[in-house]
Design a protein around this nucleic acid. Sequence first.
DNA 1: ACACTCCGTGGACGCCATCGACCGGAGCCT
DNA 2: AGGCTCCGGTCGATGGCGTCCACGGAGTGT
Lengths: 152, 152
Amino acid sequence: MDAIDRSLVELLRGNARLSYAELARQVGLSAPAVHERVGKLESGGVIRAYRAEVEPESIGLGVTALIGIVEDSDADTDDVLEAFRQMPEIESCYFMAGVESFLLKARVGTIAELEQLIVRLNRTPGVASTRTGIALSTKWENRPQPIEPVTS
Amino acid sequence: MDAIDRSLVELLRGNARLSYAELARQVGLSAPAVHERVGKLESGGVIRAYRAEVEPESIGLGVTALIGIVEDSDADTDDVLEAFRQMPEIESCYFMAGVESFLLKARVGTIAELEQLIVRLNRTPGVASTRTGIALSTKWENRPQPIEPVTS
DNA sequence: ACACTCCGTGGACGCCATCGACCGGAGCCT
DNA sequence: AGGCTCCGGTCGATGGCGTCCACGGAGTGT
């Protein structure tokens, strides 16, 4: 993970569809060298995936909610997690410090669907209570921040 | 935005680096047809960007926090937003219903940096108070959910 | 029926991805 | 020091891909 690798990661975070040839020009290596480096970043787990970022409304997901979860004192956290994993509406899941063990980011089409999701969450074994906040608008999301040149 | 467009969006959400030729095979069209459709999805704002998803720890961003912001009663929301926009640590920014006007997802390298960020947030004109939750671990993030075949 | 538009196909051509061969420097053993 | 090995790069070749363009059929309004 040297300076060139960091440049490659930064370039691909900005535009995942850059060709190897273009990446090579940007970092001053040959295309095969870049190909190999990127391959290692992928198999080494640094690059997890390449995703198109889509306007949620246009795929029928206009409602974004952030939901805090309080667990029962005797809950099995792994089971709760597994239940959440089965709910495709939950796009992100953080295990948090604090009273609320989890914070979920969920996306649904309508408020009615959100209601159903919350009911399902509250019914989930191990879940004591939920607290839902609705995002009225998303100002930005997953903005990549420039990589600080830390020598590691 | 027909069924084929939805397939293309779904394929690219799963893997943004698929070639046009491969997309074409998957949806049963020719490569130029796919090229044109994807171009229209991009310029029409449906596809906003293509990003590599990176393991945050490996780029020195091991600490994730979710921060709720309460505004002063006389705050100018646009100014507050603009101040947030200047802080690269803030990866996502949602305008929320409820007492906390904003919910921010921030990523920093260390707890010390988080402390500095919180201080800066509290000093920001228009910000009355902040409430920070620390993510101990990220179970998953930005998992794409399958597109429901809504006819719109 | 005609013309127009939209959206696709097929062909062509230059660039790109990817493989294999080669090469030079770093580290190490003798 | 000399030489071995390994790592990681360049170079060259080739098959596939991206992308432009000309063409054609379905649907539509006049």
